[in-house]
Amino acid sequence: MSAADAFLRVEGLAQRFPAQGRGEPLTVFEGVDFSIAKGEFVCIIGHSGCGKTTILNVLAGLEKPTEGFVFMDGREVAGPGLERGVVFQGHALMPWMTVLGNVSFAVRSRWPEWSRAKVEEHCRKFIAMVGLAGAEHKKPSQLSGGMKQRVGIARAFAIEPKMLLLDEPFGALDALTRGVIQDELVKICRATQQTVFMITHDVDEAILLADRIVLMSNGPRARIAEIVRNTLPPDRTRLTLHHDPQFYRIRNHLVDFLVHRSKLIQQGAVDPSAGERRGPIEVSPGLDETEPSEQTTVASSSAEILPLQRRAAVSQPRFSTGAH
């Protein structure tokens, strides 16, 4: 994909905080370049403190980067707008509104000229899409965590944005609920050909959902280490995913990166942009059949990287408390 036909283009993004006292200014991330094609699903993975949420907020227009630009559909992103729907980490539903109220709050913002009946009909369609038909008049306090997150997704989809930004939307859910909602998200995204940028901590989730996976090295001074192309068939499901030999190659590549290489890159031992090229390297580990087979032992039954992250934090206490 060339930069010209990119739907979303991110150029030289950096976030720095002014120095505290005599210290050096703190660079959270720098030199972040990537692009997303129309209809593409991109996940970003990295340890806490590498600035993933900041990047997403910059894409949403909620935060201004210290350096760099974001272009969407040929225009610079200068502030928040209705053409980008955001699903927030903590669902961010208004607790005094019903499910219908929360979704219609967004719909009325998008189409203020619509009649009440038309707004409600539109909302009901999207509430049904996330499987919450019948719960329209419930308050968020009457819903489970998974249901609340679905309302958040329905709210973001209901404004029919050009692009969807998801900030770790399933982070707080149990594995079972997460799986069900992931399936639904896959279904909806394939049906609507939605362009999606999503933050996740879950390697399996990224492989299931993403067409490409952006890997961030550890912060501070984080950057994009590489972009992993997901070469699994696009009709993959949670059931078939782990039967494909490519799955383990990609998964091992990602886990290996998170446990080991993300730190080395930060420390400067490995320089991914040594070749003086614009933009990060794109790799397709799924197609690399020469990979040594003993590496598959890294894959454990649990896909969560959080324990691994904690292990990494022991050897690197400076970043163990890094916030999102």
Partner: peptide, 24 residues
């Protein structure tokens, strides 16, 4: 986060005051 929701939805200041801040 509620204010951010209103910002991403380009909610007018009046609606933000009466539909988000006041009930909150």
């Amino acid at each position: 986060e509620w204010l951010n929701v209103s910002r991403t939805l380009e909610v007018s200041p009046w609606r933000k005051a009466f539909e988000v801040i006041l009930p909150a």
